[in-house]
Design a binder for these strands. Structure first.
Length: 554
RNA sequence: GGUCCUAUGGUCAAGCGGCUAAGACGCAACCCUCUCAAGGUUGAAUCGCGGGUUCGAUUCCCGCUAGGAUCACCA
């Protein structure tokens, strides 16, 4: 047995499987021609990030549109940063946005034949591969401490050379296998590094599915592939996992482009075919006039929980993200009047190449459209679901009478261009609370915003006439014609034009009369259609409110 | 700083050698109107700079500039 084999055996005495065994265990997938296998590979380090949702959406689209497989792998090799429970949370949040996986990690269990789908459970697989690498002298143990590494980096900075563990700076790369074995037996801690044979001065052409050819210097860093805790680093886990899981297209953020040479080199060294890569543009944020990557820590909209808490319908968020991914989605959705990303023909090559600024205005636009197209019934149930966790004050109103709530939401809804005044569920409460008697009393407790020029007696007379004459059985148009008559008898002109040409003859015009009624009923100068409000409130409540205002003014 | 990516209105962007340079969001005005939310009409606003190539560059090439990403036993 040669020295490298002995070293490998010393490091992994209990690994008896080979790469060939693994190939047999994870045979090629049986998919039709052109079907793509994609994955979403998040780390369980906290809430789902908006950029991650974007990536997941694209990955799923690519797989589904091609009749392939979309799976999820949990990249939980960083035990220090892991937030317990966030893996499950990720799955749940993804599901809220309609992103379901075909196979992979599902929180409490794995589904699929290419698992385990949690990297922390795949240690034995990585070890098989690394053992083979050591046997071929393509990986070696490194005993450098973090202090030594820091010292190397510092000296490199002083010498103004490229920092990193390479060439003669890679002191452990030339340790003899005997020496390495000796140190291991002594109990020194170590990591395993990949022995790079790349040349920093040589460029390789790599093709990206979105960007086309990219020319980057070869990797010459001996990167760590197995940490001292026995878990792999991202680079190595990516290569091994996506090989054995037979991923055909890796979708990930643009920030990974720079480590692409590392991945390519490892695929080559192992004799494996690398997957296609699609490096997605980052979602950016404007700060002090500069763009920057959306940051989870600084930007509330970076976590998708922001949208959930504010009450944006998931469909609206997805539509917005899709409009960033493929700008023709917007045009498509205009014609189809639906915001269903599943039926849209997505294209990787139509993606923009630079990061989009997150645009809340645009999201609001999509969201208004989406909400306006929901039935009152659906909006009621969706907003209730939201209120349960986020808005006790709204929930209170809903719970008083669900049917009444639904009727409020149905105002000006069932028509060709429905009302678009809610961009998110959190907009609802403020706009509908006047429908509830106690809230109404609260809203009108102060001075009412009547036009100062309007005499109290005029207001009172109009409201009194209204109480007596109003007919609740009329339809919208007839009702308004009827209301004009009432206003006329109180001295209002039937039109603005008429009023303007005979200022001294009238106390105001029909618009003023409507304003008086509106303020009296809602406490505000702005509201939805008056007739609709009357219908929902009903005669008893209307009369009570008007009586209240009359008394207040008397 | 090295390396890589990117560059059309405020934002998202179409364009792929010849166009009055689409469209959407936002903004403004007007119309409609019982107010608001809408809806309709109109408008303001863009090819970063400098060299080439070409009869002709927003488009192709090279610089520059700017922005971004990345340089860990994090992913």
């Amino acid at each position: 047995m040669d020295a490298y084999k002995q070293l490998a055996a010393a490091i992994f005495p209990d690994v008896d499987e080979t790469i060939e065994d693994l190939e047999l265990r994870y045979p090629p997938r049986n998919l039709k021609e052109g079907a793509q296998v994609t994955r979403f590979a998040p780390s369980p380090t906290g809430f789902l990030h908006t950029g991650s949702l974007f990536t997941a959406m694209v990955a799923k689209k690519v797989a589904k549109d091609s009749g392939g497989i979309f799976f999820l792998r949990l990249e939980d090799t960083d035990t220090k940063r892991e937030v317990s429970g966030s893996g499950e949370q990720l799955i749940a949040q993804l599901a809220e946005f309609g992103i379901m996986i075909d196979e992979g990690y599902l929180g409490n269990r794995d589904v699929g034949n290419y698992g385990p789908y949690r990297q922390s459970k795949r240690a034995s697989i990585y070890k098989v591969v690394i053992k083979s690498l050591i046997e071929r002298n393509l990986a070696y143990p490194c005993f450098c401490s973090s202090e030594e590494l820091d010292a190397i980096r510092k000296s490199q900075e002083e010498e103004k050379v490229v920092p990193g563990y390479y060439g003669h700076y890679a002191v452990c790369r030339n340790l003899s296998p005997e020496e390495a074995m000796h140190r291991i037996k002594e109990g020194q801690t170590y990591v395993l590094r990949f022995r790079s044979s790349g040349d920093h001065l040589k460029k390789t052409e790599i093709s990206d599915l979105i960007r086309g050819e990219i020319s980057i210097a070869e990797n010459d860093l001996d990167i760590v592939i197995l940490k001292s805790d026995g878990l792999p680093t991202y680079h190595f886990a990516h290569v091994v996992d996506d090989h054995f899981m037979h991923t055909t297209i890796v979708t990930r953020g643009e920030e990974w482009i720079s480590s692409l040479p590392i991945h390519i080199e490892m695929f080559k060294a192992l004799g494996w075919k690398a997957p296609g890569y699609a490096h997605l543009p980052l979602i950016m944020k404007l700060e002090n006039g500069n763009k920057r990557k959306l940051s989870k820590r600084k930007d509330s909209e970076a976590a998708v929980s922001f949208f959930m808490e504010d009450g944006y319908p998931p469909r609206a968020v997805m539509a917005y993200l899709m409009s960033i991914a493929n700008s023709n989605f917007e045009e498509w959705t205009e014609q189809n009047h639906i915001f269903d990303i599943d039926t849209f023909a997505f294209s990787l090559t139509k993606m923009s190449l630079d990061g989009a600024l997150f645009d809340l205005d645009k999201l609001n636009f999509f969201s208004k459209e989406v909400i306006a197209r929901m039935s009152a019934h659906r909006l009621a149930s969706q907003s209730k679901k939201w209120a349960i966790n986020n808005a006790p004050e709204l929930l209170d109103l809903i719970n008083r009478n669900h049917e009444y709530y639904e009727r409020i939401l149905n105002i000006e809804r069932e028509k060709d261009n429905p009302r678009k005044d809610f961009a998110k569920y959190s907009d609802i409460y403020r706009q509908i609370r006047f429908f509830y008697h106690d809230h109404y009393l609260d809203l009108v407790s102060g001075p009412l915003p009547f036009n100062e020029k309007m005499a109290k007696s005029t207001i009172i007379s109009l409201l009194r006439d209204f109480i007596i004459h109003n007919d609740y059985s009329l339809d919208n148009d007839s009702w308004f014609a009827d209301f004009k008559q009432t206003a006329l008898t109180s001295g209002f002109a039937a039109s603005n034009k008429e009023y303007k040409s005979n200022l001294e003859k009238y106390v105001g015009h029909i618009g003023d009369a409507a304003e008086i009624l509106r303020i009296s009923l809602t406490g505000s100068k702005n509201s939805p259609n008056l007739w609709a409000i009357l219908q929902v409130l009903g005669q008893k409540e209307v009369d009570e409110r008007l009586q209240y205002v009359i008394e207040k003014l008397s």
